[in-house]
Design a binder for these strands. Structure first.
Lengths: 344, 344
DNA sequence: CTGTTAGCGCTTTCAC
DNA sequence: GTGAAAGCGCTAACAG
């Protein structure tokens, strides 16, 4: 169990009848080696099934060939998809991905204090992970490139969607359908210092543009999650005058809201319309209207940014990918109300 | 951007007024260093904000402090959860996680041929990833410990659920409710050489135990996925005599089936009952009856197995974690039929 | 308890 | 084009 006896480059060199220097050049296909000499070395390596020792090679060169990926959540679809896209392009470039899950504030503090990835990577990618100033200072200590994905960032190159625009796509769809009493289930992450506000601002802006006065009662703020979304919806339903439509910051939350509606015996979209953001795979299965965002794609672009940064290309510092409204079965025009206000 | 000038251990030693050997011992808190000497070294390191060079350290010791995790899917809940659990315990032990996504057959071939993790890790964990014989031979070349999680394995220590038992829990629930015309939506992964058969066997065994003759028409085999589940359900619905209950191999597939039922205007569980396996978070939101399996927990156990194996403890080679039936709103007794067969 | 001294396996000037 | 030799930064005997 681990008693391996890897051949060394010296052995390969000997077998090929060359010096270590030449072997090294041939193996890393550096220039300045006669074609057939290179062949001989390669053959020898093959025969010994030789693999360079990364540690030794790294020690000598100073680069690691690794990038650290810091994620606040692993099992949520959006984050996992970002990670998947990122891993794909990094692996393509033969870089290894070191995974750091920083779930709660404790992990977070620990990560930035100990900087466990220090000296182990050439770059670090923070996935949908707002980094505050102090944390930025700590990261800077690592002396490597930092890239952000899935969220805008002031100090680092990044790729993300326009949260405000996405929110507007959702809200405008609702107002276009004729809804005027629209609720928002706004989410925040207690373990994130700075919640991105774009999706919330979009709510108020859309309302204003439609000439609708915002009613504070209609804004529910909760932690992210299906159960949380359900609870928020319950509260919304207990209002004297419940909304005719609900805009949730994410699909999972919207699905939670739908459970409450189902349990309350309300029809969707007959009684209430629901819209989310993300286009989670399960949104399609549940016929949820939503705003699509390319999660995998953002991860891939992040990977490209990492690569070009490392290469020193220094191009595209900020990429914003488009989102798209996907109308499915949970939104429709509001039911003409039995005129509860004026009647009787 | 990468122009770092990390202090070396020699500098720390000098600052602390000791030899490098002592510095090394103190830093790696090895025994045999006077308490106050150790303190001085630590202080010096702190002051210089020194961090050991992993490459150098590794080169000297021969261990890497890393483990490779090979996963066939990243963004599916079950795999991501396994990964999350695994990462947590590994990180706790200060080991780094190298992520290798082996999505399709091409990735797969490439992974086992090039063995990109070779010499980079102390162990590799295959997550819900059947490894065939030839691949095992390749892995053996790495000369490190191999652990399997989320799936049974003949040659490696593993942690998993009992698929047959889980399937029985689902099926027995259905037969207990009185269903006799039960369909199965069986899934397979075209990129996996060996599909685990436990969940399917459970179907036939349960049927036999309930004295029900299996009807081949009622078994739909499809790739994993929501859309696939929906399509399978559509086929089932077009049968002369559709099932009164459906047992799906996984929740996502079950949710797909439910979409078909919804679109067909059928009531669940009124007209047809549906049950899945996994207890995906969204199962709760959709009121799906299912069989719970601890995904995170399996990942954690896998991590412990890795750790103890590396430590040489050589305990628990095979762990099977229990599953549990979770009855929610998609299963119920079959509707007493209008007696289509004898009637008229 | 502490210091000296070899390497760990590779890359890289610098000569030839 | 190729080889000799000097490290890269750390650990691990082995003495003291």
């Amino acid at each position: 169990m681990g008693s391996d006896n890897h051949p060394t480059m010296a052995e390969v060199a000997t077998l090929a009848g060359v010096s270590m220097a030449t072997a090294s050049r041939a193996l890393s296909n550096a220039p300045g080696v006669a074609p057939d000499t290179r062949q001989r070395v390669l053959a020898a390596a093959q025969q010994l099934s030789y693999v360079v020792s990364p540690e030794a090679s790294r020690l000598a060169t100073g680069t690691t060939g690794r990038v650290a990926v810091v994620v606040p959540h692993i099992s949520r679809w959006f984050f996992a998809s970002l990670l998947e896209g990122l891993e794909a392009v990094l692996r393509e470039a033969d870089m290894d991905v070191l995974l750091y899950h920083v779930g709660d504030l404790h992990d977070r503090r620990d990560f930035f204090e100990r900087l466990p990835a220090r000296r182990k990577v050439d770059a670090v990618v923070v996935l949908a992970f707002p980094v505050d100033e102090e944390e930025q200072r700590r990261l800077a200590l690592m002396g490597v490139a930092i890239i952000a994905a899935g969220g805008q960032h002031a100090s680092y190159p990044y790729v993300c969607i326009d949260d405000f625009a996405a929110g507007r796509q959702a809200m405008d769809h609702l107002t276009f359908l004729g809804h005027r009493r629209i609720a928002m289930i706004e989410t925040y992450d207690p373990d994130q210092p700075v919640p991105p506000a774009g999706r919330s601002q979009a709510y108020f802006a859309a309302l204003a543009d439609a000439g609708i006065e915002a009613d504070p009662e209609l804004v529910e703020t909760t932690r992210w999650g299906g159960a949380e979304g359900a609870a928020a919806m319950d509260r919304l339903l207990s209002l004297r005058e419940p909304p005719t439509a609900v805009y949730a910051h994410s699909d999972e939350v919207a699905l939670g809201a739908m459970r409450s509606l189902r349990r309350a015996g309300l029809a969707v979209p007959g009684d209430i319309s629901v819209i989310g953001i993300d286009d989670h795979p399960l949104a399609e299965l549940t016929d949820l209207t939503t705003v699509h965002q390319p999660a995998l794609g953002q991860g891939e672009i992040a990977g490209q940014i990492v690569l070009s940064t490392l290469r020193g290309d220094e191009i595209k510092r900020a990429v914003t990918v488009p989102t798209k409204l996907v109308i499915r079965g949970t939104t429709g025009p509001p039911r003409p109300r039995p005129d509860r206000a004026s009647g009787r």
